[in-house]
Nucleic acid binder design. Structure first.
Length: 504
RNA sequence: GGCCCGUUCGUCUAGGGGUUAGGACGUUAGAUUUUCAUUCUAGAAACAGGGGUUCGAUUCCCCUACGGGCUACCA
């Protein structure tokens, strides 16, 4: 009897969405879709001190841009709401209390200052079986006194009482069997003094209540897995416990450690999916979207950072990933992020999709420069230049001259080996252009070459000046194609104007 | 420090007891493109080290080294 696949992404809304998070979302999504299950979005906002206005809406927008839409969750509805933990506050306490009643958790009255002092006084201090009897909690003070304190509203937390000399085993779908000795695990806080649960309690309670079948999360959660497993057990839900899937981390390209926002700034690439502006500091971190990435490319490159389908295929549509994704083909080791390869993926995707699919993106890029071309014409131009673009933003540099005449010229390129005879050539060229019957690239090229040979000037000496006259510099696609698409009159006007500029 | 996880070209990875250890990015050299990019061809480039097991280990086991993560009333 197969359990329905229900997976969730549960971000803490505290800032920009890191690409590691996007990859976790992607794996969740692929797995859910492949198994005809549900992908759920839950907001883990149990830390009120870290509340950042706008962060939740930002995550929703990221998801939308990536095209990885949840089936259920915050703003998407579902039968297991609310999906925001701050709105579930009242349901957690009873479970913590249940554990206290069962003797598997206890009230602790130590203040943050007490703990701070302990940590300073004792190296490697852990609140655990070794120390709990020296602390101020319901294990060390008389039971009635502790109960009274709680009743009177004395500040307290509830901590899990981790057993001694036990081993916690579990099977991670990526790593296989993992074992922990409970003697090494500390008594984590379950319920904070403000009445909010910590991640540890909330994640277990909500995953149970929301019938989560598989927990995908970063490897940084591995050390707290034994706490969660013990909680599943103590709460009596062991048979419903989800499968654990701890994903490898995305590491810095150079030095040590996991990829952070700072690395992006330092090395010049985005770390967030879309732009994030911190509401307090107004600090701006650019995103893949703003950098000119196609969401298909971001998904594709992230999927391949840690997973492959054993073939040599590298370019995958979302559907292809859904069809071939497999957890046992996810790598165990962390992957250093490679910006060069990321750019390659985007260039490949720009080449892969059609001009029409590219159209809305390019329209947006050009609109930011106040260029609003007619759709059909733009589509033709996109087809002409798309293989020269790495970023969507490159479409401006690669195509602006199809819509507007150059404002300046690369004079070195234009004047190289310039001579009066060349000015004469271009004057005659204008005449010939005016008289030509049609205006297609081969015809234009023909006229150009015949005139050059009539005047005994090498084509090579003429092509570059012609190009610079039309576009302003040494760039762009085949020059006769440019002439064709900007049209006869624009071509003549641009030559005329350039000739005047050279005279000056 | 303790605990946990990991380790194939510079990077992402395929492979798996006997292979010329494959691909991709990047890189180098050439061809094409009378700009540049694209494209094409060729090249350099890896099994961390030491012990086992075995006729034979890059592949299985152990140790070491190295890398990473965690060690909050943060997630």
């Amino acid at each position: 009897m197969e359990k329905e696949v229900r997976v969730r992404f549960a971000p803490s809304p505290t800032g920009g969405l890191h690409i590691g998070g996007v990859r976790t979302i992607l794996y969740n999504y692929l797995f859910a879709k492949q198994n005809k299950g549900k992908f759920i979005l839950r907001i883990e906002d149990t830390d009120q001190s870290r509340f950042v206005p706008g962060a939740e809406e930002y995550i929703l927008n990221c998801l939308k841009w990536c095209g990885l839409t949840p089936d259920e969750g915050v703003t998407f509805g579902g039968d297991y709401g609310p999906y925001r933990q701050s709105e579930r506050k009242k349901i957690y306490r009873q479970y913590a209390e249940q554990l206290v009643a069962q003797g598997q958790a206890y009230y602790a009255f130590d203040t943050p200052v007490d703990l701070e002092n302990k940590r300073n006084a004792i190296p490697n201090f852990q609140y655990s079986h070794a120390t709990r009897m020296h602390m101020r909690n319901s294990l060390t003070i008389p039971h009635e006194a502790a109960e009274a304190l709680v009743r009177e509203g004395a500040p307290h937390v509830i901590r899990i009482k981790i057993p001694e000399h036990e081993n916690v085993y579990f099977n991670d779908l990526i790593r296989g069997n993992v074992t922990f000795d409970t003697n090494q695990v500390d008594d984590k806080v379950l319920l904070k003094a403000d009445g909010m649960p910590t991640y540890h309690l909330a994640v277990v309670v909500d995953d149970y209540l929301m019938k989560i079948s598989h927990v995908f999360r970063g490897e940084e959660w591995l050390p707290s897995a034994p706490v969660h497993i013990l909680l599943w057990k103590y709460l009596g839900w062991e048979t419903d416990m989800p499968q654990w899937v701890h994903l490898p981390l995305i590491l810095k390209p150079d030095g040590k450690g996991k990829l952070s926002k700072r690395d992006g700034e330092r090395l010049g690439f985005p770390v967030f999916a879309t732009e994030w502006i911190d509401p307090k500091t107004h600090e701006k971190a650019i995103g893949y979207k703003e950098m000119g990435f196609l969401p298909q490319a971001l998904n594709n490159l992230l999927a391949l950072l840690g997973w492959n389908n054993s073939t040599e295929q590298e370019i995958f549509t979302l559907q292809e990933m859904i069809d071939t994704f497999s957890l046992d083909r996810v790598h165990k080791g962390g992957a250093k992020f490679d910006w060069d390869k990321a750019k390659w993926f985007n260039a490949e995707w720009i080449k892969k999709i059609s001009a029409d699919e590219l159209l809305p993106y390019v329209q947006e890029v050009l609109a930011s420069k106040n260029i609003y071309p007619e759709k059909e014409y733009l589509s033709t131009i996109i087809q002409l230049v798309k293989e020269r673009c790495v970023f969507l933003n490159d479409f401006y540099e690669q195509s602006f001259f199809f819509f507007t005449a150059p404002h300046s010229y690369d004079m070195d390129a234009l004047k190289s080996k310039w001579a009066d005879e060349k000015a004469l050539f271009f004057n005659d060229l204008i005449n010939q252009f005016e008289q030509s019957e049609n205006w297609e690239a081969p015809e234009i090229e023909n006229i150009f070459k015949q005139l050059a040979s009539a005047k005994a000037i090498k084509i090579g000496e003429l092509m570059l000046p012609f190009r610079v006259m039309l576009v302003g510099g040494k760039f762009g696609p085949q020059v006769f194609l440019i002439a064709q698409h900007i049209g006869r009159q624009a071509t003549i006007d641009r030559i005329t104007k350039a000739l005047e500029t050279i005279k000056l």
